Simulated assay, not measured.
Amino acid sequence: MRTAEVHYGTDGQVNLTVPKGTKMADIARLQELVISKINPRGCQACLSGVHFNIREELEHVMKVDLDKMATIKGTIKGTVIGH
């Protein structure tokens, strides 16, 4: 199952994170779905200020335990930035 993350902020921005390789046609359909949930009536004046930030999901490079400020063993993949 492919999934997308949709985050809607009170500042009127919608952040869409889609899996790598997602086609623009799928993103357009996703935008329509999100708009219908934000404003079901679809008033263009109300929707003119909605900003969409669309990005592809990044591969997990590593996970960090924030309490210990240490990398979690076994989660580092590929080259770690800064090394």
Rank of each mutant, 00 (worst) to 15 (best):
M1P: 02
M1L: 09
R2L: 13
R2H: 13
R2S: 15
T3H: 06
A4D: 04
V6N: 04
Y8L: 11
Y8K: 05
G9R: 10
G12M: 09
G12I: 15
Q13S: 12
V14G: 00
N15V: 13
L16W: 01
L16K: 02
T17A: 12
V18D: 03
P19V: 15
K20G: 13
T22S: 04
K23G: 07
K23H: 10
K23D: 10
M24D: 14
M24Q: 10
A25E: 08
I27C: 02
I27A: 03
A28D: 06
R29L: 15
R29Y: 14
Q31H: 06
E32H: 04
E32V: 12
E32L: 14
L33H: 06
I35Y: 03
S36G: 11
K37V: 10
I38L: 05
N39Y: 03
N39H: 05
G42A: 09
C43S: 04
C43P: 00
C43M: 03
Q44H: 03
A45E: 03
C46H: 00
L47Q: 01
S48V: 07
V50Y: 00
H51W: 05
F52V: 03
N53F: 10
I54M: 02
I54P: 00
I54Q: 01
R55N: 08
R55Y: 08
E57T: 14
E57D: 08
E57Y: 09
H60K: 12
H60Y: 11
H60M: 13
V61I: 12
V61Y: 08
V61C: 08
V61F: 14
M62R: 07
K63A: 12
D65Y: 11
D65H: 05
D65Q: 08
D67F: 15
K73I: 11
G74V: 11
T75N: 00
G78E: 02
T79N: 00
T79Y: 09
V80A: 06
I81L: 13
I81S: 06
G82I: 13
G82Q: 06
